[in-house]
Structures are given as structure tokens and as C-alpha cells.
Design a protein around this nucleic acid. Structure first.
Length: 591
RNA sequence: GCGCCAGUAGCUCAGCUGGAUAGAGCAGCAGCCUUCUAAGCUGCGGGUCGGGGGUUCGAGUCCCUUCUGGCGUGCCA
């Protein structure tokens, strides 16, 4: 093969060749704001709007942006704004003086129980129940659209995750990747990105050859042949023997009469189809599906490998050494140069994978997110280097590393080896703890933290899993609603005036918590941190369980209050169901 | 050696991207079911945020350094 040859243009170009300008794009766009420059948090938005109105009424300028935040210290009110401090300069007024002017306007508002000035010019707001009540009603009206946003501006994002070798059952790290990637996908979609999930099938490398050899040995074993000691390099897992039996049932001894090349192809094809189907089913049981499954083998057949090689050569960053073709990736920030074509003329994993990434760009994706296992971080610099060499914006490529999962049994770390067939599979895990608990367990931890998983704990004390805490809250609410309907307390439709009955701190705290969700979802999408949804869900449930223990909802004596609380808990239930759904976890009506 | 990630309560982990008094769940102790699900709630105990410097009005969060653990550093994928 001649990567620098002139054959490049004989076939149609797979990739666009226009030069891309490297651009400085912010890694994270501003969160918490919708496109119109308004807060996605409804209460913050109202406060922000009122401050703006006050500024206008006082004919004060407000070119610079000011914020509304929830102060950490509750003594500083429910919400706090830095408007006076930010706008002091452009109005040529001292911050405190400006704050005092604003204060006079703001105290007129029925939504604020108190407005005070603190510190260097913070304006602190204590919120009147009326604002919480109005907000609850607005959320109720939004229904399933609550939390929807245009934050992502329809950006096409490709999420690649799992992408395991199709040489065996999926392991625990794949399960973690599946839970992480799928949840991130769901949340990004909710906040206005245009994401797609993709699984890259490494069905063309060395590992597949070894798989075929392993299968052939097991097949010969079935036919009574003495195969001697099973090679160390081969796949030792029991599933290979199962596959051999299945293949034997289909082909019998016929396969041994095929020419060697044909037989190898048959073995490969059979094993890959079976194992890929097995992986697909494991993922489906985990409620994870993919918009795309891209085969390395297919990709190679499309000529993209040669094309990528020629581009790199054209960019003058390849050379030959020791009969191999190298990529001078050190020119672009890598530690060492990388082999593209081995001395035996075959291609390294890197080339088709790079080609695959370029097809993503070709298909119109502007953000390529790869979720990798911990053992791949050395691989990133060469991918980034290739992007730079080919003049693509390397910031389009974003790699997220999931740290490893350590399994513990009886306090001892379980050592796993795919080669040796010692492996706890994704299916094992789902069988033991169930889909919901497993997904929750993986989602609830941030990506780049190691994860210790005690199998016995999961097996014996699975009620300790916080997922039940959340699902239980949902089931409890369903139970109350059922009782309300049975007692004929549940109204045909809720009336807005009912919300005025909600004045207790526990009730208002629930409303406030619900209003946090839309902004949180944007933050999660922006920072790729789905674990924060798990934390949020637990907090929401905690508030509900406390409320539940304190107050009776259904009461024939006070029907209006009952109905107001029914509206509240139904909104909690819908919010909860939404959170659980975003995590791919079921929301049971009873437990 | 170099690079990446992590180190927060006995254990597993959060900590809103620099804010005021560091949180939750398990585990331990003490309470709460004739009322909508006790897989729940309430209270108590538990911490030199690995160590040391620095930046800042302010650091678990940022910078430097050091220790410990994991991973990477193949013409494997």
C-alpha cells in the first residue's frame, strides 16, 4: 500500500476537504439562562424581571448583566442579587446607594415578603408565599414540558459510549458507560441539544482473529479432537463453548470441510453476530438503545482508511521507519509518534477509529463526545493530534473518562480478566440487583471517580440502595392520590385559587426545590455531570418524605387544603417521574 | 522516569465550578405506626476535607510541592 500515492482522487472523497478555522469556542455556554436572556428558573426569572422593571422605572441603565442566586446562608434570604454592585459603575452611584433606590421600588411588590440590603450592596429577597403559589401553578400548567429548554440550541452532539469489543459479554465498566451515556443523552435532549447515541463495533482487529481461533478450538473439542492445553491468549470464557455448540448445531462437521479462509470467515461472522446480538440484548435489558451501530469492518470497506492515510500524508505528517508508516503526532502535542501501518502492511486500530470520528463530523455533528474507560487516556493525545494535523477544531472532540469499577466480594477485590474468562458481566449485575438499582448505582457517582461495588452488599441489602428511597416516594404519592380519588376529595380539575392554601414552610420548600430542576438540567448537560440528577432526586424525595410524615394530605374536613396539597404532591410526583425517567429508572405506582 | 485520575465521618459517596456554620446514605445509639405505604420520619454521637506552602476579604474548591492508591506510557484494541 502506498499512503502517499496518487490514487486518492479516483474514488469520491468521503470527507469534506474545506479548511476549518480553529475557533475559540467556550467549553461551556452560560447555564441557567434561556435564549432570550431570561432565567430558566422561574422564580429567579421573576425576581430578575422585577429588578429590571425597577431599574427602568428609576431610569437607571443596566447594560451589564446581573445575577440572582440562592445564597448559601439562609440568613441572607431566599434569593440574592448583585445588581447594585454590578451596575454601580455605569450609573455612577455607590453600590449601597443604588441598592437603596432599588429597594424603595422593590418593596412595593407583593411577591417579596422582605427586601434588604446586606454587605457591600447585595439585595436579599425573602419570598412571599404568593410567588411560590404562582410558580406551582405555572409548573402545573406546563405539565410534561416543564424543564424543556432551548439551551442546547439544537446542536448536533454525537455520544459514543460502550463500544466494547464484540468478543464477549459486556462487563461492569460497559454497564457504567451505558448508564452514564444514556442518561446524559436523555438530559441533553431535554434541554434542547440534538444528540445521538452510537456504538462503534471493533469487528476488524486482532481480537476478532483470536476469537475465531478460540471458537474453532472449542468446536474441535466437541468433535472429540484433543486440542491440548487451551492457549493462554485465547478467550477462555464459557460463552465460547456455548457458541461452539450453537455453531455445531447449525453447521455440524461441514465447517471442517471448508477451505481454511472460508472457515475462518464463517467462524468470525458467526461469533460476531452472536456476540453482538448478545451485547445488544444486554443493553436493551438496561433500557439503553443506540441510534447508530457503526462497524469498523464496514467502514474499512468504504475506503475511508486509505483516505485518512492520504490526508495525513498530504498534511506532511507521516513518515516511514522500520518498514512501518508513522504519524508524526509529536508535532501536534503527543508524547511520541504513532504507527499507522504496521510493517506487515496491516493497519493499526487508530486509523479506522480516526476515520470513524471524521465521519461523525461529516454527518454534521459539531460536538463529538466519547465516553472511554480508564485504560484509554493515553489514546487521546493522538486523536487530538490528528484533528489538529487535519485542521479540524480539536475542541469538537471531547473525551469523558469513566474510572474503573472495582468489585468486592467478602471484602476482597475480585480480579477480572476477560482473556481468562473470569468476569462479572453486565447481565450478572442486572440479574442480581435489577436494572433500576444498577443504573442508579452507576449514575449516582461522578464519572471520574473510582467506584467500589460490593457484590454482597448489593445482593443482601439491596433495600439500602437509595433508588428505593426515590421510587418509594413516588409510590407513596400514587397511593395518596388513589385514596383521594376513592374518598372523592380529588377534584375534577384543579383551580388556581387553591394554591393560596399552601403556606407552610415544608410546602413552599417543595415548590422551591421543584423550580430548581430546569436550571439543574442545563448545568448537567453543560458539564456532562448526570450524577447531580441523582443527588437532586434524593433531595426532592427527602423533602417529600418529611412533608408526608408531618401532614395529612387527604382529609374530608378541610377539602380545599386537601386539594391544594394534592396539586402539590401531584406536581412532586410528575417531577420525580421525570427525573427517574431521565435516569432510565422506572417510577412504580406501588411497592 | 513521564503523563492522566482520585484521596472529604468507621464504610460508600455528595459538595451548585471561589462564598459565610463542610452534607447525605449505610453502620451505632434513642424515639415515632388504631390516621393517605415504617423501603419512611425525628433526635444524638462521629471530621486537623491525605500533609505542607501559596494566591484571595474569603479555599474542600485555584496554583506549587509532597505522600498514598489506581491507570496509562505496544507495530493490543
Amino acid at each position: 500500500m502506498d499512503p502517499g500515492g496518487s490514487g486518492r482522487c479516483r474514488r469520491p472523497c468521503v470527507f469534506a476537504r474545506e479548511t476549518r478555522v480553529l475557533q475559540d469556542r467556550p467549553v461551556v455556554r452560560r447555564t441557567g439562562w434561556t435564549q432570550g436572556g431570561r432565567y430558566s428558573n422561574m422564580i429567579k426569572r421573576i425576581i430578575h424581571d422585577h429588578v429590571t422593571e425597577a431599574l427602568d422605572a428609576l431610569k437607571l441603565s443596566h447594560d451589564k448583566e446581573f445575577t440572582v442566586e440562592v445564597p448559601n446562608n439562609p440568613e441572607h434570604g431566599d434569593y440574592s442579587s448583585n445588581a447594585a454592585m454590578v451596575l454601580a459603575k455605569e450609573n455612577k452611584t455607590a453600590p449601597k446607594k443604588l441598592a437603596e433606590k432599588l429597594l424603595k421600588e422593590l418593596v412595593k411588590n407583593k411577591y417579596f415578603k422582605s427586601v434588604t440590603i446586606a454587605g457591600p450592596g447585595f439585595i436579599n429577597f425573602e419570598i412571599a408565599p404568593a410567588l411560590y403559589q404562582k410558580t406551582l401553578w405555572d409548573i402545573h400548567k406546563l405539565g410534561a414540558e416543564f424543564g424543556d429548554s432551548e439551551y442546547g440550541e439544537g446542536e448536533k452532539v454525537l455520544l459514543e459510549f460502550v463500544s466494547a469489543n464484540p468478543t464477549g459479554p459486556l462487563n461492569i465498566v460497559s454497564a457504567r458507560a451505558a448508564a452514564y451515556g444514556d442518561t446524559l443523552y436523555r438530559i441533553m435532549k431535554k434541554v434542547g441539544f440534538d444528540p445521538a447515541r452510537e456504538f462503534y463495533i471493533n469487528d476488524a482487529g486482532n481480537q476478532v482473529d483470536i476469537l475465531a481461533e478460540s471458537l474453532e478450538l472449542r468446536l474441535r473439542e466437541i468433535h472429540g479432537e484433543n486440542i491440548g492445553e487451551f492457549p493462554y491468549e485465547a478467550y477462555h470464557g464459557e460463552y465460547v463453548t456455548h457458541l461452539a455448540h450453537k455453531l455445531n448445531a447449525a453447521d455440524g462437521a461441514r465447517i471442517f470441510m471448508m477451505p481454511e479462509k472460508e472457515r475462518t470467515e464463517r467462524l468470525k461472522e458467526f461469533a460476531l453476530n452472536e456476540l453482538l446480538e448478545m451485547q445488544r440484548q444486554s443493553l436493551e435489558r438496561f433500557d439503553v438503545t443506540f441510534e447508530g451501530w457503526v462497524s469498523e469492518k464496514t467502514l474499512r470497506g468504504e475506503g475511508v482508511v486509505e483516505e485518512v492515510l492520504s490526508y495525513l500524508t498530504e498534511a506532511d505528517c507521516t513518515y516511514e521507519k522500520e518498514d512501518a508508516v508513522w504519524f508524526a503526532s509529536t508535532k501536534f502535542g503527543d508524547d511520541k509518534d504513532r504507527v499507522l501501518m504496521k510493517s506487515d502492511g496491516s493497519i493499526t486500530y487508530f486509523v479506522p477509529d480516526l476515520a470513524y470520528h471524521l465521519t461523525k463530523i461529516q454527518r454534521g455533528f459539531t460536538k463529538l463526545i466519547d465516553v472511554f474507560g480508564p485504560d484509554h487516556h493515553g489514546y487521546v493525545p493522538r486523536l487530538k493530534a490528528a484533528f489538529r494535523a487535519l485542521n479540524y477544531d480539536e475542541d469538537m472532540l471531547e473525551i469523558i473518562f469513566l474510572q474503573q469499577v472495582n468489585l468486592f466480594e467478602s471484602g476482597e477485590k475480585v480480579k477480572m480478566s476477560k482473556r481468562a474468562g473470569k468476569i462479572v458481566t453486565m447481565d450478572d449485575l442486572v440479574n442480581v440487583v435489577g436494572k433500576d438499582a444498577a443504573r442508579y448505582f452507576f449514575i449516582a457517582r461522578k464519572a471520574n471517580a473510582h467506584l467500589n461495588f460490593d457484590l454482597e452488599l448489593a445482593l443482601q441489602q439491596n433495600n439500602d440502595n437509595p433508588v428505593y428511597y426515590c421510587q418509594y416516594a413516588h409510590a407513596r404519592i400514587c397511593s395518596i392520590l388513589k385514596k383521594a380519588k376513592k374518598d372523592k376529595v380529588y377534584p375534577r380539575s384543579f383551580k388556581k385559587e387553591l394554591t393560596q392554601k399552601l403556606t407552610r414552610p415544608d410546602e413552599l420548600a417543595l415548590i422551591q426545590k421543584i423550580t430548581d430542576l430546569p436550571e439543574l438540567l442545563e448545568v448537567i448537560a453543560a458539564y456532562r455531570e448526570p450524577h447531580r440528577l441523582a443527588t437532586y432526586t434524593e433531595e426532592l424525595c427527602g423533602l417529600f418524605h418529611r412533608f408526608y410524615n408531618k401532614f395529612q394530605v387527604v382529609s374530608a374536613k378541610n377539602k380545599e387544603l386537601s386539594q391544594a396539597r394534592l396539586l402539590l404532591i401531584e406536581t412532586v410526583k410528575d417531577t420525580l417521574a421525570m427525573c427517574l425517567d431521565l435516569m432510565g429508572i422506572s417510577a412504580p405506582e406501588k411497592m
